[in-house]
Design a protein around this nucleic acid. Structure first.
Lengths: 188, 188
DNA sequence: TTGTTTACTTACTAGTAAGTAAGTAGTTTT
DNA sequence: AAAACTACTTACTTACTAGTAAGTAAACAA
């Protein structure tokens, strides 16, 4: 993949995660990369193509992390995910899910499909990690793992959204409480 | 308030909660109300003014519900809120919070201010309801009420977002689990 | 050396956005 | 009866938006 192509996807991801899909334009990307709008159309004929590339890359990233961390205990897997959200929070970025699901109905069909796929992959992964944690004794929670996974994903997604509006300390409060709720041997 | 004015705010709220603030235009509203774009500018000189009106009305609605339900037990207050989310879910609408916080950085200043205010009001109300529920013995949860309120708000907000993408059964799953987690005497 | 592909730029189109200025029909006030 | 106000419409401007067509300089391939 050429540098320019990758830089475009990088910038598109940043813009989606700060301003939202409907609020950024090819001009925003062209401006900072010092290229022309048409150069972006050369790599990504339509804005939908660019959006799809951003989401596809995220799906790939999730798949590699899942593989890389597969052997770790359930609670450590969860903490790794939480760590990644800390990274996003530090940069002031929300997650792709938190940015794209509110705009879902306005997204072009192929992009909707990828967003759905991404959601399913995340849910499946989180469900597996929680199940593993319950089995290996590092996590404890009531109910089905998938329902719990949905609630955990909620908290992660919303912690980035709400902390942007209510102040950054909200982020830590939420994720601290989340881990206390579900971890078996909380460090003190 | 004139009919036209109220109809415009109604439609704007619907559009914000289905397509998002940056994805709707005065034309969308004018089309269904059979008026001209300029008629909307007559009542709301700028799009920001219209957005502010939508959020202000929501803040007022929250204040009246809070007053109306103030004497109910904590768990009933919570269930009233959950019921309202069921209503939104049935119509396919997300909540104003879930729609406006992702776009927060793109919103004009006065609208950002109102969104923040709305978030604070919701958090304060939910915190109070949870505290009351813990005192009156209808709710049980670990940690501070405000942290718990943040997580409950998360789940409500995200249940609308995620069910839109993953399928409507996700909504019930999430809210059922949420209530089981926190209610003292779950009905069976 | 010629032809082709890559990675763009320049210059453009067509559509849509918010917003404004001036006009008007009907109602209310003086 | 005249003046003023209300609730709009018509007609317009300015500023983007995504997207396209044609051209070009440099690298590469036959």
């Amino acid at each position: 993949m050429s540098d320019t192509r990758e830089n475009i996807v990088d910038k598109a991801e940043e813009l989606i995660r700060t301003k939202g899909y409907n609020a950024f334009s090819y001009g925003d990307i062209a401006g900072v990369l010092h290229i022309r709008n048409a150069a972006i159309h050369y790599y990504f004929p339509s804005k939908a193509d660019l959006g799809v590339s951003v989401v596809d890359r995220e799906i790939d990233k999730i798949a590699s992390s899942r593989e890389e961390w597969g052997d770790l205990p359930g609670n450590v897997q969860l903490r790794k995910v939480v760590e990644r959200f800390y990274g996003s929070h530090r940069r002031g970025w929300i997650c792709l899910n938190g940015s794209l699901t509110p705009d879902f109905l306005t997204l072009p069909d192929p992009l909707q499909k990828r967003v759905k796929e991404m959601c399913e992959v995340i849910l499946d992964w989180m469900t597996e990690s929680l199940e593993k944690g319950r089995k290996d004794g590092t996590l404890a929670f009531a109910g089905e793992a998938e329902s719990r996974a949905l609630l955990v994903i909620s908290s992660l997604l919303s912690s980035l959204l709400l902390s942007r509006v209510l102040g950054k300390e909200v982020f830590t409060r939420m994720l601290d409480q989340l881990l206390k709720d579900i971890e078996c041997a909380p460090d003190r």
